[in-house]
Each structure stands twice: as C-alpha cells, then as structure tokens.
Design a protein around this nucleic acid. Structure first.
Length: 299
DNA sequence: GTTGAGCGTT
C-alpha cells in the first residue's frame, strides 16, 4: 500500500495533524503517541450513526474501520479522559500530597484455604477491589497465609485498615505493607525499576502500558526471568513521578522505584566512581555479578 | 499430608 496519512486531532473540531500509516494500512499507537503524548487510542464520529466509535486496537496496532480510514478526523483518547499535560500537572501535586491514592494492603492471618476469589468477595463489600493476591509457595501452591488487596477508593482502604476482619473463620488484619511505610526518595533518572513482574508480562506490554505516562525509550527484562524489569522514559520527570507507585499491569501489582540502588555496595560505588572518571576503568574491578549488573547500565 | 508471625521471587 502506498504511503498514507490519517487525520488526527486532540478534539473533534480542532485542526487535525496528519499521521503516517504502516505499509499494511494500520497505524501504530506509538506513532500517534509520538505526536500526542499519553494517547491510548483513537475514536471517530461515524457518518452513519453519528455516534463516536472506537478504533480497534490490538497490541499497539490501530486497525482501520470497515471502509478504510477515509478522510475522517480521528480524535485522540487519553487514559481516564485526561490529557498528558493534565496528568503532568496532577502528578506534580500528587508528589506533595501523597494521599488520596490507594496503595496495596497486606492481609495477615488468612486461613490456608482462602482463595483470591474468597478475598475479592469479602472485600468487595467495602468498595471496588481492583487487585487481590494470595501469596503461595511456588513449589506446593500452598497459601502462605497472607495476601494483598487494593481498593479503587481511598475511603474503602481507610475503613478496611481501621478494623479487624473475620475471613473464613479467622481474624485477619489489613495494614500498609512495610514496603510502603517509608516513601521512596526520588532521583534524577530516566529509568525506573519495575519490581514484582510476573513472567507473562512481555516487554511489548510494558512499553504499551508505560506509554500512557510519556515516551518510552527502552524496556529491559532480564533473562532468565527474575521478576523485575527496567523501563526508560525520554523525560526524567515522568520517571520521577512514577517512583513509589504500585501500578497494576494485567492484574499484577508491580512496584515502581528508581533504577539507582538505595544503598550502594562497595563494588557498585567503586564502579560508579570509575564511570565518573576518577581514573579507574570499568574493567578494573573484575567482572560484575550478573545479579547487580542491570542496575549499573546506562542510568 | 505439618504451620500461625510475618511482609510482595530486585
């Protein structure tokens, strides 16, 4: 197919910008997001029904409507209907306030038999549950007797933390987990550490997910699987605004922190000193453990 | 095949 452009605008009656399609006639969401940072999809007004229609989106690829893209103006969708600059503005204030947004709660004392469905059914009476986990032994699959829950509303979280819970015949407590007690300190890095990844989350899915916050320049998943990943943004402020957050990707709560280690070990400090030109080269301290090496890459 | 204070496969 010959080179083609589709017309895209931020609002229905604003001047459209022409966005190039791919050879097969599809349009990449990443191409749209390059011009409209934060975009998560497209919609258009159907000439037939006069209703707004969504453009089919499959794994980051936008597919033309039945009769092709035509000369319609496509309107950019943003997550929760918010534009990127609005997200920027609110995330700036979010860092100061730090409240109102929910965080995962640890649920202690669960009966061995309690399942994630049980947890969800129980906690749904307090508010909308957006994540539940029962921690299990990876070998046996037996519950470890604790889990995590995340609510959509701050009010529900407060209520749940303020009381004990009778779940399947045992008293359980819900608290802020230790990992959330102390706030993570922000630093100037374009790269974030994504902890608690599951094996089924692909690099492409990470890229698609994090694109909503800003341009993603790199995604790194160590192989073999080690339950974490790195995501690099074009803008360090985007990276900083995400640090400390628990984000939910494919139903999994991942924890975002800075790619810089909190406490450098001696070798890392010497290595870093070397990178800043004190005369000791990178190779000067022997090979690095593959377990710490990712933290040292192009931060 | 067990258990009962804890803290999420960096």
């Amino acid at each position: 197919m010959a080179e083609m452009y589709i017309r895209v605008a931020e609002e229905e009656n604003e001047e459209p910008m022409e966005i190039p399609s791919e050879d097969d006639g599809t349009v990449l969401l990443s191409t749209v997001a390059a011009q409209f940072p934060g975009a998560c999809g497209l919609r258009y007004r159907s000439p037939v029904s006069q209703c707004m229609r969504g453009v089919r989106l499959v794994e980051g690829v936008l597919h033309a409507p039945e009769n092709g893209w035509g000369n319609l103006v496509y309107v950019v969708n943003y997550p929760k209907g918010r534009k990127m600059d609005e997200i920027d503005a609110s995330s700036a204030t979010k860092i100061k306030r730090g409240d109102q947004k929910t965080s995962d709660l640890i649920v202690l004392g669960l009966p061995w038999k309690t399942t994630e469905q049980d947890l969800k059914d129980y906690f749904n009476t307090f508010g909308e549950v957006i994540m539940v986990q029962v921690k299990r032994d990876v070998k046996t699959g037996n519950s470890k007797g604790f889990g995590f829950v995340r609510f959509a509303e701050w009010e529900a979280q407060g209520k749940v933390m303020s009381q004990r819970h009778m779940i399947d015949g045992r008293w359980c407590d819900c608290k802020l987990p230790n990992s959330k007690q102390g706030p993570d300190e922000p630093m100037r890095s374009r790269k974030v550490f994504v902890g608690r990844c599951t094996e089924d989350i692909t690099a492409d899915e990470l890229r698609q997910f994090f694109m909503q916050y800003g341009e993603v320049t790199d995604v790194f998943i160590p192989k073999p699987f080690r339950a974490f990943a790195f995501v690099t943004f074009a803008d360090d402020q985007v990276a900083a605004s995400l640090c400390g957050e628990d984000l939910i990707i494919k139903g999994v709560s991942v924890h975002i922190s800075n790619a810089e280690p909190k406490h450098n070990n001696t070798r890392q400090m010497m290595e870093r000193a070397g990178r800043f030109g004190n005369g000791f080269g990178v190779g000067g301290f022997g090979e690095l453990s593959p377990l710490i090496e990712p933290k040292l890459m192009d931060i």
